[in-house]
């Protein structure tokens, strides 16, 4: 339908001057974006909404807070807690490491090829997640992994004897860093580029030390994009399941894995508790997103 309208040259020519196309043609204008909105509603917003509503209903379809209350049972709380810890740790560590690498390649006076190689690699690694990533880390730091074996034979260090386990909080965090750090590099490098060399020179001529310049200009300028990216990385890790599932099976009890098991086999014996579990995930990432938007607008207040 919409296509037919738009391919009619006569209609198109009538609506040429955008100024005149305003009020009268409003419904026709909306036809242009209708497919997008219908798609978004049907396959993004309604399905999510369906779960959110379900989280507040009992089997009879009546309103209840019982499902949300059931989230407070120890095993589910523990799942949320470890998910938040892994996501937060990998987001913060990934952001700091990514920031350091970004500053090094933009500001460190390294040859040009270092920067372009790093950016290319980051583009690849930030998209290298999921099951294969888990394989790579099992081959590296698993019980028979190359690094594990070399540390044992060369330096007589048995990392598993020291309490390390790839199937743990530390192991999962270390694995997630493989896509978190590059994602940070990809996102934050433009922001570092935005730090003008002249700012540093202006600060120097005004008598500021490097430390003063960083404290008064660099950190305040970078802070919103840094924090915004941390939150994005957090959401990125919080919803990830494939890596963790392939790495640990279901031995590590994080929320996405719990939800996965619930969808497959109703392990919680209450469909509405599954909805509540999903609602909890959206709630946490949504909360993070509110911060993200807030910091974005702050960042934009300064930078144009």
């Amino acid at each position: 339908m919409t296509d037919a309208t738009f391919s009619d040259p006569a209609a198109a020519r009538q609506s040429v001057p955008p100024a005149r196309a305003g009020g009268l043609r409003l419904p026709l204008q909306w036809l242009g974006v209708a497919p997008f909105f219908i798609f978004a509603l049907m396959f993004l917003i309604f399905p999510t909404f369906y779960l959110v509503v379900g989280a507040f209903q009992n089997d009879q379809g009546e309103f209840t807070l019982a499902n949300i209350a059931s989230l407070l049972q120890p095993s589910i709380l523990a799942a949320y807690w470890i998910s938040i810890r892994v996501s937060l740790a990998s987001a913060v560590l990934g952001a700091l490491a990514g920031l350091a690498i970004s500053i090094a390649i933009v500001r460190g006076g390294l040859p040009r090829w270092v920067r372009s190689a790093t950016m290319t690699f980051s583009g690849v690694a930030s998209n290298f997640a999921g099951v294969p990533l888990a394989f790579a880390f099992l081959a590296t730091l698993g019980r028979l992994g190359l690094v594990t074996v070399l540390l044992r034979t060369w330096f007589d260090i048995n990392i598993y004897g020291l309490g390390f386990n790839i199937l743990s909080f530390a192991g999962l965090t270390l694995t997630y860093l493989f896509f978190q750090i590059p994602l940070m590099v990809v996102i934050i490098t433009p922001a570092i580029d935005g730090l003008k060399k002249e700012w540093g020179e202006a600060a120097a001529t005004l008598g500021a030390t490097q430390v003063q310049f960083w404290r008064m200009v660099v950190i305040p300028v970078l802070w919103p994009s840094f924090l915004g990216t941390v939150i994005l990385l957090f959401a990125n890790a919080f919803g990830a399941i494939a890596t963790a599932y392939a790495l640990t099976g279901s031995s590590l009890n994080i929320v996405p894995i719990l939800l996965y098991a619930q969808i497959r086999g109703d392990v919680l014996h209450n469909p509405h508790l599954g909805y509540a579990l999903a609602f909890g995930m959206i709630f946490i990432t949504g909360l993070a997103n509110v911060f993200y938007i807030w910091f974005r607008t702050r960042s934009e207040r300064w930078l144009k």
Binding site: F43, I45, P47, T48, Y50, L259, A278, I282, N289
Partner: peptide
Amino acid sequence: LLPLIIPAIVIVFGYIRM
């Protein structure tokens, strides 16, 4: 930007129910 915030597992869960 929503798909970056709503985890894939939640979206597909919604599909299965709807």
